[in-house]
């Protein structure tokens, strides 16, 4: 699954640690999600969407989707 987490974070000038604290996860988890190594759960994806004021689809995209 692709995601725009790194771009959205950079636009707001947030560090991985700040985003991790906001989403109540570890910095390692944010790093793994940004690198596409780990797909977040639905509750965490909703939390990220709420934080950025976007829909889940605007942050996370299925790799198969053109």
């Amino acid at each position: 699954m692709k995601n725009r987490l790194k771009v959205l974070r950079a636009e707001r000038d947030w560090t991985q640690a700040q985003l991790a604290a906001e989403l109540e996860v570890s910095r390692q988890t944010i790093n793994a999600i940004e690198k596409g190594k780990f797909d977040p759960s639905l509750p965490l994806a909703f939390k990220a969407a709420r934080l950025f004021g976007l829909s889940i689809e605007e942050i996370f995209q299925d790799e198969a989707t053109p």
Binding site: W14, A17, Q18, A21, E24
Partner: peptide
């Protein structure tokens, strides 16, 4: 983001 440090501290 104001509470993020507090959230992070709580979690830690």
């Amino acid at each position: 983001m104001n509470d993020s440090k507090a959230d992070g501290d709580d979690r830690a």
